[in-house]
Measured scan of single mutants.
Amino acid sequence: KLCLVCSDEASGCHYGVLTCGSCKVFFKRAVEGQHNYLCAGRNDCIIDKIRRKNCPACRYRKCLQAGMNLEARKTK
């Protein structure tokens, strides 16, 4: 099974979405830290295992598009 954000090996369902541990922690920190990420490109950066750290804005956008939600952990 692959992470729906970066296509690395998924470690489980986190915040409602099948993700790897790295994307799970990234999403939690992004939401709780209330980061205002900005993409230096055109908001279409490739997010994969190798390049997932290059653009936090696009990675966060991809987390949201996949359906990640901090509240999902509280309902399970």
Rank of each mutant, 00 (worst) to 15 (best):
K1P: 03
K74R: 15
R51T: 11
S11K: 12
R73I: 08
A66G: 06
E71R: 07
L4I: 15
F26A: 00
Y15V: 04
A72P: 07
R61W: 07
R51H: 07
N54D: 11
E71K: 07
L38M: 14
G21H: 06
A10W: 02
K76D: 13
C20R: 01
V17L: 05
I46S: 13
L4W: 08
G16H: 04
L4N: 12
D48V: 02
L2F: 15
C58N: 02
A66K: 14
R61P: 01
D44G: 05
H35E: 15
D48Q: 03
R52Q: 05
G16C: 03
C55V: 01
T19A: 10
N43E: 13
K76H: 06
L2K: 15
D48P: 02
C13V: 13
F26I: 02
C45W: 00
F27L: 03
L18M: 07
C58Q: 01
L64T: 07
S11R: 09
G33P: 04
C63M: 07
L18Q: 07
K49L: 09
C39H: 02
A10C: 05
I46E: 12
C6M: 00
M68W: 01
R42N: 15
A66F: 09
E71Y: 06
V31K: 07
G41T: 09
Y60V: 04
Y37D: 05
T75L: 15
M68G: 02
K76C: 15
I46C: 10
C55R: 00
K28S: 08
K49I: 06
R59T: 02
C20N: 01
H14P: 04
V17C: 15
L64F: 06
K53N: 09
Y37E: 06
E9S: 14
M68R: 01
C20F: 01
K62F: 05
R51N: 10
D48I: 02
K74D: 15
T75C: 07
R42G: 13
K74W: 11
H35W: 07
D8F: 04
A40P: 08
S22P: 08
Q34F: 04
L2V: 11
R52K: 10
V25Y: 06
G12K: 07
N43C: 04
E9M: 14
N54I: 13
I50N: 11
L4P: 06
K28V: 07
Y15C: 05
V31G: 10
R73A: 08
C58K: 00
V25H: 15
L38I: 09
R61N: 13
G12V: 05
C3P: 01
C63V: 01
T19P: 01
G41R: 14
H14G: 05
C55H: 00
K49E: 06
L18H: 11
D44V: 09
R61S: 12
I46V: 10
K74T: 10
Q34L: 06
Q34N: 15
N43Q: 14
N36W: 05
Q65G: 08
M68S: 01
A40E: 09
L38S: 10
N54P: 04
A10Y: 04
Y37N: 10
G16V: 01
P56Q: 12
G33H: 12
Y15M: 12
L38T: 10
S11I: 13
